[in-house]
Computed example of a mutant assay.
Amino acid sequence: MKIRNQIIGLMRFSYPSKGGFVKAGDDPEAQARRLYDPARLERRFDLFEKLTLPSLLAQSDQDFRMVFLIGRDLPDVWRDRLADAIAPLAGARLVALVSLPHYLAVRRAYAMAEKDNATHVTGFRLDDDDALDIHHIARMRATVEALLPVTGPELPLVTGCHRGFFLERKPEGNEIFEVVEKAPIGLGLAMTTPKGVSENIFRRNHRFANQWYNTYTDANQPAFIRTVHSDNDSDPHASGRIEKVDWAQAGPVIEAHFPFAAEMLKAL
């Protein structure tokens, strides 16, 4: 069988799911107030427009779809801003759903982006305040093509990375840390399955992916920038080695792998 692998990214852009949040309670109205607070959304857009979206637009392999999952009740001013921002991204698709259980919502969103002629789907995850290196999609495609015949085309295959940077935003000045995770990080993590299989990368806690699936993560490439700030839903800590580096040292590496100048990140 000739494998035709489709790559689909999924971003939950302040989607008010039932479950899926660490800090949210069970009251849907309280959750909506928190997610749709104008000051919070302005902060999210600031990171998305300066960090996350540019990293997607700069991908050397543009043959992927990117689903942006939002709530149907997201106020028009924010929905329009998001639609305008992602318009230059060729594979962008805005999906608006009512509040659903978290995993059901992401399953529906992925399914709405699948191509009819694909035999396999590689679905990856990305938050709206993080960035991928410019060759992330190309490397993902090559890795899956190399490993799928070995692991078996009918079995789930998880691929990702565990080397990158944490960017800590601080009033007194941003700091940068180089990290090498010892467990799979969710940022850019992907699962490949035959098309039509409902299981996807959100099914299990990403830290424990290798307990459930054949898992390969790249330790060589600086593959991500994760931001650490007051709006993080989960506790943003590295599960492995973390080392503070100065901007002069980190700058050339960042600028070689990401579409950013170090000075921009320093002032972000």
Results as ranks from 00 to 15, higher is better:
residue 155 L to K: 13
residue 58 A to K: 00
residue 146 A to I: 06
residue 179 V to I: 13
residue 56 L to I: 05
residue 177 F to H: 15
residue 207 R to E: 09
residue 262 A to P: 05
residue 5 N to T: 09
residue 250 A to I: 11
residue 22 V to I: 09
residue 104 L to F: 07
residue 239 S to D: 14
residue 184 P to A: 06
residue 249 Q to Y: 14
residue 158 V to E: 00
residue 51 L to D: 02
residue 69 L to V: 03
residue 159 T to M: 13
residue 135 H to G: 01
residue 175 E to R: 11
residue 158 V to S: 00
residue 194 P to L: 08
residue 43 R to L: 12
residue 105 A to L: 13
residue 127 D to P: 11
residue 178 E to S: 09
residue 153 P to L: 09
residue 14 S to M: 00
residue 256 A to M: 07
residue 106 V to P: 00
residue 45 F to M: 01
residue 26 D to R: 15
residue 3 I to E: 05
residue 139 R to I: 12
residue 86 I to H: 01
residue 139 R to L: 09
residue 42 E to M: 10
residue 249 Q to V: 14
residue 154 E to R: 10
residue 3 I to V: 08
residue 174 N to G: 12
residue 8 I to N: 00
residue 10 L to Q: 11
residue 262 A to I: 11
residue 268 L to I: 15
residue 81 R to M: 12
residue 116 D to W: 09
residue 247 W to R: 12
residue 90 A to R: 15
residue 199 E to R: 09
residue 100 L to P: 08
residue 2 K to V: 13
residue 56 L to N: 02
residue 87 A to L: 13
residue 128 D to Y: 01
residue 151 T to W: 10
residue 26 D to V: 10
residue 47 L to D: 02
residue 124 F to H: 06
residue 165 F to C: 02
residue 62 Q to W: 14
residue 113 A to Q: 11
residue 82 L to K: 04
residue 191 M to A: 13
residue 197 V to F: 05
residue 84 D to M: 02
residue 89 L to H: 02
residue 4 R to M: 12
residue 52 T to W: 03
residue 231 D to T: 07
residue 145 E to M: 04
residue 33 R to K: 14
residue 85 A to F: 10
residue 64 F to S: 01
residue 268 L to G: 10
residue 118 A to M: 06
residue 148 L to D: 01
residue 1 M to I: 14
residue 4 R to Q: 07
residue 222 P to C: 15
residue 262 A to Y: 05
residue 19 G to M: 03
residue 226 R to Y: 08
residue 241 R to A: 11
residue 195 K to C: 08
residue 144 V to S: 01
residue 200 N to A: 14
residue 118 A to F: 06
residue 60 S to M: 08
residue 176 I to T: 03
residue 137 I to F: 00
residue 215 T to P: 06
residue 72 R to V: 02
residue 265 L to S: 03
residue 177 F to C: 14
residue 19 G to W: 03
residue 74 L to M: 14
residue 58 A to G: 02
residue 178 E to H: 12
